[in-house]
Design a binder for these strands. Structure first.
Length: 479
RNA sequence: GCCGCCAUCGUCUAACGGCUAGGACGGCGCCCUUUCACGGCGUAAAUUCGGGUUCGAUUCCCGGUGGCGGUACCA
Protein backbone atom coordinates (compact mmCIF):
# COMPACT_ATOMS: atom_id res chain seq x y z
CA UNK A 1 0.00 0.00 0.00
CA UNK A 2 1.36 3.38 -0.98
CA UNK A 3 2.28 5.73 1.81
CA UNK A 4 -0.03 8.70 1.86
CA UNK A 5 1.88 11.96 1.91
CA UNK A 6 0.34 14.38 4.37
CA UNK A 7 0.12 17.90 3.04
CA UNK A 8 1.06 20.64 5.48
CA UNK A 9 -2.05 21.97 7.17
CA UNK A 10 -3.16 25.40 6.01
CA UNK A 11 -6.28 27.18 7.17
CA UNK A 12 -7.66 30.58 6.32
CA UNK A 13 -9.89 33.33 7.57
CA UNK A 14 -11.63 35.14 4.77
CA UNK A 15 -13.54 38.17 5.97
CA UNK A 16 -15.17 40.60 3.60
CA UNK A 17 -14.46 44.21 4.50
CA UNK A 18 -18.05 45.39 4.22
CA UNK A 19 -18.55 46.32 7.85
CA UNK A 20 -17.06 46.29 11.34
CA UNK A 21 -15.37 43.19 12.69
CA UNK A 22 -18.43 41.23 13.70
CA UNK A 23 -18.41 38.96 16.73
CA UNK A 24 -19.20 36.00 14.47
CA UNK A 25 -16.18 36.75 12.31
CA UNK A 26 -13.98 37.00 15.38
CA UNK A 27 -15.40 33.69 16.62
CA UNK A 28 -14.63 31.92 13.35
CA UNK A 29 -11.19 33.52 13.21
CA UNK A 30 -10.45 32.29 16.72
CA UNK A 31 -11.42 28.69 15.99
CA UNK A 32 -9.29 28.71 12.84
CA UNK A 33 -6.42 30.21 14.76
CA UNK A 34 -6.67 27.75 17.64
CA UNK A 35 -6.76 24.89 15.15
CA UNK A 36 -3.77 26.28 13.26
CA UNK A 37 -1.66 26.94 16.33
CA UNK A 38 -2.21 23.55 17.86
CA UNK A 39 -1.28 21.85 14.60
CA UNK A 40 1.68 24.11 13.89
CA UNK A 41 -0.16 25.02 10.75
CA UNK A 42 -0.21 28.09 8.56
CA UNK A 43 -2.99 30.59 9.11
CA UNK A 44 -3.85 32.74 6.10
CA UNK A 45 -5.81 35.97 6.20
CA UNK A 46 -7.50 36.66 2.90
CA UNK A 47 -9.60 39.72 2.22
CA UNK A 48 -12.70 38.91 0.21
CA UNK A 49 -13.43 42.22 -1.40
CA UNK A 50 -15.00 41.08 -4.64
CA UNK A 51 -18.04 43.20 -3.88
CA UNK A 52 -16.64 46.51 -5.07
CA UNK A 53 -19.60 48.59 -4.00
CA UNK A 54 -19.61 47.50 -0.38
CA UNK A 55 -15.96 46.84 0.37
CA UNK A 56 -14.03 49.56 2.15
CA UNK A 57 -10.38 49.83 2.99
CA UNK A 58 -11.12 51.21 6.48
CA UNK A 59 -13.02 48.09 7.32
CA UNK A 60 -10.15 45.92 6.21
CA UNK A 61 -7.90 47.80 8.60
CA UNK A 62 -10.42 47.62 11.40
CA UNK A 63 -10.75 43.87 10.98
CA UNK A 64 -6.99 43.30 11.04
CA UNK A 65 -6.61 45.62 14.00
CA UNK A 66 -9.40 43.90 15.90
CA UNK A 67 -7.95 40.45 15.35
CA UNK A 68 -4.54 41.62 16.52
CA UNK A 69 -6.08 43.11 19.63
CA UNK A 70 -7.79 39.81 20.39
CA UNK A 71 -4.43 38.11 20.18
CA UNK A 72 -4.87 36.48 16.80
CA UNK A 73 -2.02 36.69 14.34
CA UNK A 74 -1.60 35.22 10.87
CA UNK A 75 1.26 33.88 8.83
CA UNK A 76 0.24 35.15 5.43
CA UNK A 77 -2.02 38.01 4.49
CA UNK A 78 -2.45 41.27 2.66
CA UNK A 79 -0.16 43.08 5.09
CA UNK A 80 2.40 40.30 5.35
CA UNK A 81 2.57 38.75 1.93
CA UNK A 82 3.40 35.09 1.43
CA UNK A 83 4.12 32.79 -1.47
CA UNK A 84 0.50 32.35 -2.45
CA UNK A 85 -0.54 35.99 -2.65
CA UNK A 86 -1.82 38.51 -3.35
CA UNK A 87 -4.23 38.01 -0.46
CA UNK A 88 -6.78 40.57 -1.49
CA UNK A 89 -9.30 39.24 -3.98
CA UNK A 90 -9.51 42.59 -5.72
CA UNK A 91 -5.86 42.12 -6.67
CA UNK A 92 -6.37 38.65 -8.08
CA UNK A 93 -8.62 39.30 -11.04
CA UNK A 94 -6.14 37.98 -13.62
CA UNK A 95 -6.09 34.69 -11.73
CA UNK A 96 -9.85 34.35 -11.62
CA UNK A 97 -10.06 35.35 -15.25
CA UNK A 98 -7.85 32.45 -16.22
CA UNK A 99 -9.97 29.86 -14.43
CA UNK A 100 -13.18 31.43 -15.61
CA UNK A 101 -11.93 31.11 -19.16
CA UNK A 102 -10.92 27.52 -18.50
CA UNK A 103 -14.42 26.67 -17.36
CA UNK A 104 -15.88 28.41 -20.38
CA UNK A 105 -13.52 26.59 -22.76
CA UNK A 106 -14.30 23.24 -21.19
CA UNK A 107 -17.99 23.90 -21.55
CA UNK A 108 -18.47 23.75 -17.75
CA UNK A 109 -19.63 27.34 -17.72
CA UNK A 110 -21.45 29.55 -20.20
CA UNK A 111 -22.53 33.08 -20.87
CA UNK A 112 -26.08 33.81 -19.91
CA UNK A 113 -28.07 36.45 -21.77
CA UNK A 114 -31.13 36.46 -19.57
CA UNK A 115 -31.76 39.79 -17.93
CA UNK A 116 -32.55 40.32 -14.29
CA UNK A 117 -36.13 40.92 -15.31
CA UNK A 118 -36.28 37.59 -17.15
CA UNK A 119 -34.98 35.80 -14.09
CA UNK A 120 -37.33 37.59 -11.76
CA UNK A 121 -40.32 36.66 -13.91
CA UNK A 122 -39.23 33.02 -13.94
CA UNK A 123 -38.81 32.99 -10.24
CA UNK A 124 -42.25 34.47 -9.67
CA UNK A 125 -43.84 31.86 -11.90
CA UNK A 126 -42.08 28.99 -10.15
CA UNK A 127 -42.78 30.09 -6.61
CA UNK A 128 -46.41 30.69 -7.58
CA UNK A 129 -46.60 27.00 -8.46
CA UNK A 130 -44.92 26.09 -5.20
CA UNK A 131 -41.76 24.96 -6.95
CA UNK A 132 -38.23 25.78 -5.82
CA UNK A 133 -37.05 28.88 -7.69
CA UNK A 134 -34.10 27.92 -9.84
CA UNK A 135 -32.74 29.12 -13.15
CA UNK A 136 -34.32 27.23 -16.03
CA UNK A 137 -31.13 26.83 -18.05
CA UNK A 138 -32.38 28.90 -20.95
CA UNK A 139 -28.90 29.90 -22.16
CA UNK A 140 -27.20 26.65 -21.28
CA UNK A 141 -27.05 25.16 -24.73
CA UNK A 142 -27.20 28.16 -27.01
CA UNK A 143 -25.29 27.51 -30.23
CA UNK A 144 -25.00 31.14 -31.19
CA UNK A 145 -25.11 34.20 -28.98
CA UNK A 146 -28.47 35.88 -29.51
CA UNK A 147 -28.17 38.70 -32.05
CA UNK A 148 -27.77 42.18 -30.65
CA UNK A 149 -27.46 40.99 -27.07
CA UNK A 150 -24.53 41.23 -24.69
CA UNK A 151 -23.91 38.55 -22.10
CA UNK A 152 -25.36 39.40 -18.70
CA UNK A 153 -23.43 36.95 -16.50
CA UNK A 154 -21.40 33.75 -16.49
CA UNK A 155 -23.08 30.64 -15.17
CA UNK A 156 -21.68 27.36 -13.98
CA UNK A 157 -23.31 24.19 -15.35
CA UNK A 158 -24.45 22.47 -12.20
CA UNK A 159 -24.56 18.73 -12.84
CA UNK A 160 -27.56 16.92 -11.39
CA UNK A 161 -26.10 14.66 -8.80
CA UNK A 162 -25.78 14.04 -5.10
CA UNK A 163 -22.85 15.71 -3.40
CA UNK A 164 -21.65 14.28 -0.13
CA UNK A 165 -18.98 15.61 2.17
CA UNK A 166 -17.82 14.79 5.66
CA UNK A 167 -17.85 17.71 8.05
CA UNK A 168 -15.42 17.46 10.97
CA UNK A 169 -18.15 18.61 13.31
CA UNK A 170 -21.36 17.38 11.72
CA UNK A 171 -20.35 14.19 9.98
CA UNK A 172 -21.83 13.24 6.61
CA UNK A 173 -23.92 15.84 4.80
CA UNK A 174 -25.64 15.16 1.48
CA UNK A 175 -27.16 17.61 -0.98
CA UNK A 176 -29.17 16.95 -4.12
CA UNK A 177 -27.76 19.44 -6.63
CA UNK A 178 -30.68 19.10 -9.01
CA UNK A 179 -32.41 21.61 -6.76
CA UNK A 180 -29.79 24.29 -7.35
CA UNK A 181 -30.01 25.33 -10.97
CA UNK A 182 -27.03 26.78 -12.84
CA UNK A 183 -25.47 29.33 -10.55
CA UNK A 184 -23.95 32.64 -11.47
CA UNK A 185 -20.22 32.61 -10.79
CA UNK A 186 -19.21 35.94 -12.29
CA UNK A 187 -20.68 39.11 -13.67
CA UNK A 188 -18.06 38.97 -16.41
CA UNK A 189 -14.47 37.78 -16.79
CA UNK A 190 -13.17 40.50 -14.51
CA UNK A 191 -15.84 40.33 -11.86
CA UNK A 192 -16.07 36.93 -10.20
CA UNK A 193 -18.50 36.26 -7.39
CA UNK A 194 -17.81 34.84 -3.96
CA UNK A 195 -18.63 31.19 -4.60
CA UNK A 196 -16.20 31.02 -7.50
CA UNK A 197 -13.43 33.13 -6.02
CA UNK A 198 -13.24 31.05 -2.82
CA UNK A 199 -12.86 27.87 -4.79
CA UNK A 200 -9.95 29.24 -6.80
CA UNK A 201 -8.29 30.86 -3.81
CA UNK A 202 -8.61 27.93 -1.45
CA UNK A 203 -7.10 25.65 -4.07
CA UNK A 204 -4.28 27.96 -5.09
CA UNK A 205 -3.46 28.84 -1.51
CA UNK A 206 -3.42 25.11 -0.73
CA UNK A 207 -5.98 25.40 2.03
CA UNK A 208 -6.46 21.97 3.59
CA UNK A 209 -9.19 22.74 6.14
CA UNK A 210 -12.04 25.13 5.62
CA UNK A 211 -13.39 26.16 9.02
CA UNK A 212 -16.28 28.62 8.73
CA UNK A 213 -19.72 29.49 10.00
CA UNK A 214 -22.72 27.22 9.65
CA UNK A 215 -24.31 29.73 7.31
CA UNK A 216 -21.96 28.34 4.66
CA UNK A 217 -23.05 24.70 4.67
CA UNK A 218 -25.28 25.10 1.65
CA UNK A 219 -22.45 26.76 -0.27
CA UNK A 220 -20.24 23.76 0.27
CA UNK A 221 -21.76 21.40 -2.32
CA UNK A 222 -21.68 24.19 -4.91
CA UNK A 223 -18.03 24.78 -4.22
CA UNK A 224 -17.23 21.09 -4.35
CA UNK A 225 -18.82 20.87 -7.79
CA UNK A 226 -16.57 23.64 -9.06
CA UNK A 227 -13.50 22.02 -7.49
CA UNK A 228 -14.30 18.90 -9.46
CA UNK A 229 -14.78 20.83 -12.69
CA UNK A 230 -11.44 22.53 -12.22
CA UNK A 231 -9.61 19.44 -11.02
CA UNK A 232 -8.88 20.95 -7.61
CA UNK A 233 -8.46 18.91 -4.44
CA UNK A 234 -11.32 18.91 -1.96
CA UNK A 235 -10.45 20.41 1.43
CA UNK A 236 -11.81 19.10 4.70
CA UNK A 237 -14.74 21.11 6.01
CA UNK A 238 -15.86 22.13 9.47
CA UNK A 239 -18.95 24.28 9.96
CA UNK A 240 -19.08 26.15 13.23
CA UNK A 241 -22.22 26.91 15.22
CA UNK A 242 -23.48 30.46 14.98
CA UNK A 243 -23.57 33.07 17.75
CA UNK A 244 -27.18 33.78 18.61
CA UNK A 245 -29.41 36.50 20.04
CA UNK A 246 -31.40 35.69 23.19
CA UNK A 247 -34.31 34.72 20.91
CA UNK A 248 -32.03 32.24 19.11
CA UNK A 249 -31.83 34.16 15.85
CA UNK A 250 -28.46 35.03 14.34
CA UNK A 251 -26.70 37.61 16.51
CA UNK A 252 -27.69 41.13 15.52
CA UNK A 253 -27.47 44.70 16.70
CA UNK A 254 -31.03 44.57 17.92
CA UNK A 255 -29.96 42.72 21.06
CA UNK A 256 -26.32 43.52 21.68
CA UNK A 257 -23.26 45.18 20.29
CA UNK A 258 -22.07 43.07 17.41
CA UNK A 259 -18.77 44.77 16.69
CA UNK A 260 -15.70 43.53 18.52
CA UNK A 261 -14.52 47.14 18.80
CA UNK A 262 -17.56 47.97 20.94
CA UNK A 263 -16.38 45.53 23.56
CA UNK A 264 -12.87 46.85 23.41
CA UNK A 265 -14.21 50.38 23.84
CA UNK A 266 -16.36 49.27 26.73
CA UNK A 267 -13.34 48.06 28.64
CA UNK A 268 -13.30 44.32 28.07
CA UNK A 269 -9.92 42.62 28.14
CA UNK A 270 -8.79 40.76 25.05
CA UNK A 271 -7.91 37.65 27.07
CA UNK A 272 -11.40 37.53 28.54
CA UNK A 273 -12.92 38.07 25.15
CA UNK A 274 -10.90 35.25 23.66
CA UNK A 275 -11.76 32.91 26.50
CA UNK A 276 -15.44 33.79 26.18
CA UNK A 277 -15.55 33.36 22.41
CA UNK A 278 -13.74 30.04 22.61
CA UNK A 279 -16.42 28.78 25.00
CA UNK A 280 -19.20 29.65 22.60
CA UNK A 281 -19.82 26.32 20.97
CA UNK A 282 -16.93 24.54 22.57
CA UNK A 283 -15.87 23.35 26.02
CA UNK A 284 -12.75 21.54 27.19
CA UNK A 285 -12.84 18.08 28.73
CA UNK A 286 -12.67 19.12 32.38
CA UNK A 287 -14.66 21.56 34.48
CA UNK A 288 -12.33 24.48 33.91
CA UNK A 289 -13.88 27.75 32.82
CA UNK A 290 -11.00 30.16 32.82
CA UNK A 291 -8.47 29.20 30.20
CA UNK A 292 -5.63 31.39 28.98
CA UNK A 293 -4.39 31.46 25.42
CA UNK A 294 -1.80 28.72 25.81
CA UNK A 295 -4.27 26.45 27.56
CA UNK A 296 -6.88 27.08 24.90
CA UNK A 297 -4.43 26.08 22.19
CA UNK A 298 -3.51 22.97 24.12
CA UNK A 299 -7.04 21.92 25.05
CA UNK A 300 -8.88 22.87 21.88
CA UNK A 301 -10.41 19.98 19.99
CA UNK A 302 -12.45 20.70 16.90
CA UNK A 303 -14.30 17.41 17.10
CA UNK A 304 -15.75 18.52 20.43
CA UNK A 305 -17.28 21.62 18.90
CA UNK A 306 -21.02 21.90 19.42
CA UNK A 307 -23.48 21.54 16.55
CA UNK A 308 -26.14 23.89 17.88
CA UNK A 309 -25.79 27.66 17.96
CA UNK A 310 -24.85 29.44 21.19
CA UNK A 311 -26.51 32.49 22.69
CA UNK A 312 -24.20 35.39 23.46
CA UNK A 313 -24.43 35.82 27.21
CA UNK A 314 -22.99 39.12 28.34
CA UNK A 315 -23.25 38.28 32.04
CA UNK A 316 -20.87 35.42 31.58
CA UNK A 317 -18.54 37.69 29.66
CA UNK A 318 -18.65 40.17 32.53
CA UNK A 319 -17.79 37.46 34.99
CA UNK A 320 -14.89 36.27 32.89
CA UNK A 321 -13.66 39.81 32.52
CA UNK A 322 -13.69 40.15 36.31
CA UNK A 323 -11.73 36.92 36.58
CA UNK A 324 -9.06 38.28 34.25
CA UNK A 325 -9.05 41.61 36.09
CA UNK A 326 -8.32 39.71 39.30
CA UNK A 327 -5.15 38.33 37.78
CA UNK A 328 -3.80 41.80 37.08
CA UNK A 329 -1.84 44.01 39.49
CA UNK A 330 -3.09 47.48 40.41
CA UNK A 331 -0.38 48.95 38.21
CA UNK A 332 -1.38 46.83 35.23
CA UNK A 333 -5.02 47.74 35.59
CA UNK A 334 -4.14 51.40 36.06
CA UNK A 335 -2.16 51.33 32.86
CA UNK A 336 -4.95 49.67 30.91
CA UNK A 337 -7.63 51.89 32.43
CA UNK A 338 -5.89 55.20 31.90
CA UNK A 339 -7.45 55.85 28.48
CA UNK A 340 -10.86 55.30 30.04
CA UNK A 341 -10.16 57.93 32.69
CA UNK A 342 -9.09 60.29 29.94
CA UNK A 343 -12.26 59.53 28.01
CA UNK A 344 -14.27 60.46 31.09
CA UNK A 345 -12.32 63.71 31.32
CA UNK A 346 -10.79 62.78 34.64
CA UNK A 347 -7.36 64.32 34.69
CA UNK A 348 -5.31 61.92 36.73
CA UNK A 349 -1.72 60.85 36.98
CA UNK A 350 -0.70 57.20 36.95
CA UNK A 351 0.09 57.09 40.65
CA UNK A 352 -3.30 58.32 41.73
CA UNK A 353 -5.08 56.00 39.32
CA UNK A 354 -3.16 53.11 40.72
CA UNK A 355 -4.27 53.98 44.24
CA UNK A 356 -7.87 54.37 43.13
CA UNK A 357 -7.71 51.03 41.33
CA UNK A 358 -6.50 49.44 44.54
CA UNK A 359 -9.64 50.39 46.42
CA UNK A 360 -12.31 50.06 43.73
CA UNK A 361 -11.11 46.99 41.85
CA UNK A 362 -13.58 44.72 43.58
CA UNK A 363 -16.50 46.67 42.16
CA UNK A 364 -15.46 46.79 38.52
CA UNK A 365 -16.36 44.36 35.76
CA UNK A 366 -14.71 46.27 32.94
CA UNK A 367 -11.99 48.87 32.56
CA UNK A 368 -14.70 51.38 31.88
CA UNK A 369 -16.09 50.84 35.38
CA UNK A 370 -12.94 52.25 36.95
CA UNK A 371 -13.47 55.91 36.09
CA UNK A 372 -17.12 55.53 37.05
CA UNK A 373 -16.31 54.04 40.43
CA UNK A 374 -13.26 56.24 40.91
CA UNK A 375 -14.67 59.64 40.03
CA UNK A 376 -15.39 60.45 43.67
CA UNK A 377 -11.67 60.45 44.37
CA UNK A 378 -11.18 63.37 42.03
CA UNK A 379 -14.20 65.47 42.80
CA UNK A 380 -16.72 65.36 45.62
CA UNK A 381 -20.17 64.67 44.15
CA UNK A 382 -23.14 66.87 45.02
CA UNK A 383 -25.29 65.27 47.71
CA UNK A 384 -28.11 66.18 50.08
CA UNK A 385 -27.49 66.61 53.81
CA UNK A 386 -30.14 63.96 54.50
CA UNK A 387 -27.87 61.34 52.98
CA UNK A 388 -25.59 61.77 56.00
CA UNK A 389 -28.24 60.34 58.30
CA UNK A 390 -27.81 56.71 59.13
CA UNK A 391 -30.80 54.40 59.56
CA UNK A 392 -32.95 55.42 62.53
CA UNK A 393 -30.74 58.19 63.79
CA UNK A 394 -31.43 61.87 63.11
CA UNK A 395 -29.57 64.81 61.62
CA UNK A 396 -28.67 65.95 65.14
CA UNK A 397 -26.38 62.96 65.64
CA UNK A 398 -24.44 63.63 62.45
CA UNK A 399 -22.48 66.73 63.46
CA UNK A 400 -21.18 65.41 66.78
CA UNK A 401 -20.18 62.15 65.11
CA UNK A 402 -18.36 63.94 62.34
CA UNK A 403 -16.65 66.31 64.78
CA UNK A 404 -15.48 63.42 66.88
CA UNK A 405 -13.92 61.79 63.85
CA UNK A 406 -12.50 65.09 62.69
CA UNK A 407 -10.66 65.75 65.91
CA UNK A 408 -9.14 62.32 65.98
CA UNK A 409 -8.08 62.51 62.35
CA UNK A 410 -6.45 65.87 62.82
CA UNK A 411 -4.11 64.16 65.26
CA UNK A 412 -2.93 61.70 62.63
CA UNK A 413 0.08 62.96 60.72
CA UNK A 414 -0.33 63.27 56.97
CA UNK A 415 2.45 60.72 56.52
CA UNK A 416 0.48 58.14 58.43
CA UNK A 417 -2.71 58.46 56.47
CA UNK A 418 -2.60 54.80 55.51
CA UNK A 419 -5.14 52.09 56.04
CA UNK A 420 -3.55 50.46 59.06
CA UNK A 421 -3.25 53.68 61.01
CA UNK A 422 -6.63 55.01 59.99
CA UNK A 423 -8.36 51.80 60.91
CA UNK A 424 -6.91 51.96 64.40
CA UNK A 425 -7.81 55.60 64.75
CA UNK A 426 -11.41 55.06 63.74
CA UNK A 427 -11.74 52.00 65.93
CA UNK A 428 -10.74 54.20 68.85
CA UNK A 429 -13.25 56.88 67.84
CA UNK A 430 -16.10 54.38 67.65
CA UNK A 431 -15.05 52.75 70.85
CA UNK A 432 -17.88 50.74 72.28
CA UNK A 433 -20.47 52.90 70.52
CA UNK A 434 -22.50 52.20 67.41
CA UNK A 435 -20.27 51.81 64.40
CA UNK A 436 -22.94 52.92 61.93
CA UNK A 437 -23.52 56.17 63.74
CA UNK A 438 -19.96 57.28 63.04
CA UNK A 439 -18.94 55.33 59.97
CA UNK A 440 -21.99 55.97 57.80
CA UNK A 441 -21.93 59.77 57.99
CA UNK A 442 -18.18 59.75 57.67
CA UNK A 443 -18.28 57.59 54.57
CA UNK A 444 -20.99 59.76 53.00
CA UNK A 445 -19.02 62.89 53.85
CA UNK A 446 -16.00 61.44 52.10
CA UNK A 447 -17.74 59.91 49.10
CA UNK A 448 -20.92 61.93 48.69
CA UNK A 449 -22.56 58.65 47.66
CA UNK A 450 -25.01 56.18 49.11
CA UNK A 451 -22.63 53.37 48.26
CA UNK A 452 -18.87 53.46 48.06
CA UNK A 453 -15.73 51.87 49.48
CA UNK A 454 -15.33 52.23 53.24
CA UNK A 455 -14.07 55.48 54.82
CA UNK A 456 -10.62 54.16 55.61
CA UNK A 457 -10.02 53.13 52.03
CA UNK A 458 -11.28 56.44 50.74
CA UNK A 459 -9.13 58.48 53.10
CA UNK A 460 -6.02 56.49 52.31
CA UNK A 461 -6.39 57.62 48.71
CA UNK A 462 -7.63 61.14 49.38
CA UNK A 463 -4.94 62.05 51.90
CA UNK A 464 -5.30 64.09 55.06
CA UNK A 465 -5.98 67.49 53.64
CA UNK A 466 -8.75 66.53 51.23
CA UNK A 467 -10.34 64.14 53.72
CA UNK A 468 -10.58 66.84 56.36
CA UNK A 469 -11.91 69.30 53.80
CA UNK A 470 -14.73 66.94 52.85
CA UNK A 471 -15.63 66.37 56.48
CA UNK A 472 -15.78 70.13 56.98
CA UNK A 473 -18.05 70.43 53.95
CA UNK A 474 -20.41 67.88 55.49
CA UNK A 475 -20.51 69.67 58.83
CA UNK A 476 -21.23 72.87 56.97
CA UNK A 477 -24.11 71.16 55.15
CA UNK A 478 -25.82 70.31 58.41
CA UNK A 479 -25.81 73.88 59.65
C1' G B 1 -42.68 26.54 0.04
C1' C B 2 -38.09 23.79 -0.89
C1' C B 3 -33.13 22.13 0.88
C1' G B 4 -29.87 21.47 4.94
C1' C B 5 -28.62 21.62 10.07
C1' C B 6 -29.94 21.30 15.18
C1' A B 7 -32.47 20.00 20.18
C1' U B 8 -29.59 18.45 28.42
C1' C B 9 -31.19 23.64 34.00
C1' G B 10 -33.05 30.71 32.02
C1' U B 11 -27.77 30.71 29.53
C1' C B 12 -22.85 28.23 28.19
C1' U B 13 -22.12 23.17 28.70
C1' A B 14 -20.44 17.66 30.98
C1' A B 15 -21.89 12.62 31.06
C1' C B 16 -17.55 4.27 26.73
C1' G B 17 -25.64 2.43 26.24
C1' G B 18 -25.11 1.71 33.11
C1' C B 19 -24.27 5.98 40.00
C1' U B 20 -28.72 10.72 43.02
C1' A B 21 -27.85 13.70 35.09
C1' G B 22 -22.02 17.02 36.90
C1' G B 23 -19.75 22.14 36.41
C1' A B 24 -19.97 27.44 35.37
C1' C B 25 -22.78 32.20 34.68
C1' G B 26 -27.15 34.29 36.32
C1' G B 27 -31.21 33.79 40.25
C1' C B 28 -32.54 33.00 45.34
C1' G B 29 -31.14 32.40 50.74
C1' C B 30 -27.69 32.81 54.78
C1' C B 31 -22.95 34.68 56.71
C1' C B 32 -19.38 38.80 56.64
C1' U B 33 -20.52 44.22 57.00
C1' U B 34 -21.57 51.54 58.40
C1' U B 35 -23.49 51.29 52.61
C1' C B 36 -22.84 49.14 47.91
C1' A B 37 -19.69 45.76 46.07
C1' C B 38 -16.07 41.75 47.08
C1' G B 39 -15.67 37.16 49.53
C1' G B 40 -17.57 32.49 52.03
C1' C B 41 -21.45 28.85 52.49
C1' G B 42 -25.94 26.88 50.79
C1' U B 43 -30.18 26.25 47.36
C1' A B 44 -33.76 25.89 43.31
C1' A B 45 -33.42 24.77 38.24
C1' A B 46 -32.78 20.44 32.51
C1' U B 47 -32.54 15.42 29.15
C1' U B 48 -38.78 18.68 23.43
C1' C B 49 -42.76 14.85 22.62
C1' G B 50 -44.28 9.81 20.81
C1' G B 51 -42.79 5.18 19.30
C1' G B 52 -39.12 1.40 18.81
C1' U B 53 -34.03 -1.52 19.77
C1' U B 54 -32.09 -3.16 24.64
C1' C B 55 -31.68 -6.32 30.94
C1' G B 56 -31.03 -0.89 30.78
C1' A B 57 -31.60 4.77 26.84
C1' U B 58 -29.61 11.90 27.72
C1' U B 59 -26.84 8.59 24.53
C1' C B 60 -28.75 4.26 18.99
C1' C B 61 -33.11 4.08 15.11
C1' C B 62 -37.93 6.08 13.18
C1' G B 63 -41.70 9.81 13.39
C1' G B 64 -43.92 14.41 15.29
C1' U B 65 -42.99 19.29 17.18
C1' G B 66 -39.95 23.37 17.63
C1' G B 67 -35.67 26.46 16.42
C1' C B 68 -31.91 28.05 13.11
C1' G B 69 -29.40 28.61 8.43
C1' G B 70 -29.70 28.79 3.13
C1' U B 71 -32.67 29.56 -1.04
C1' A B 72 -28.70 36.99 -4.45
C1' C B 73 -25.52 39.75 -10.52
C1' C B 74 -23.75 39.70 -0.87
C1' A B 75 -20.06 37.21 1.42
Amino acid sequence: MAEKIEKPIRVRMAPSPTGHLHMGTAHTALFNWLFARQHNATFVLRVEDTDKERSRKEYEEEIAEGLRWLGIDWNEGPDKGGDFGPYRQSERTVIYRKYLQELLDKGEAYYCYCTKEDIEAQKQALTAQGLPPKYNGHCRDLKEPPAGKNPEVIRFKVPETKVEFTDMIRGKVVFDTSLFGDMIIAKDLDNPLYNFAVVVDDALMEITHVIRGEDHVSNTPKQILMQRALGFPEPTYAHLPLILNPDRSKMSKRFADTALSDYRNNGYLPEAMMNFLAFLGWHPKGDQDVLGTEELIREFDITRVQKAGAIFNQEKLDWLNREYLKKMSDAEIAHAAQPFFAAEKIAADKEKIEKVVGVVRGRASTLKDFPAAGRLFFELPEYAASLLVWKNTTLETVVPALKKAETALKEVSADHFDQVFLRETLAAVVGSGSRGEILWPLRVALSGQASSPDPVEIMSVLGKEESLRRIAVAIEKCA
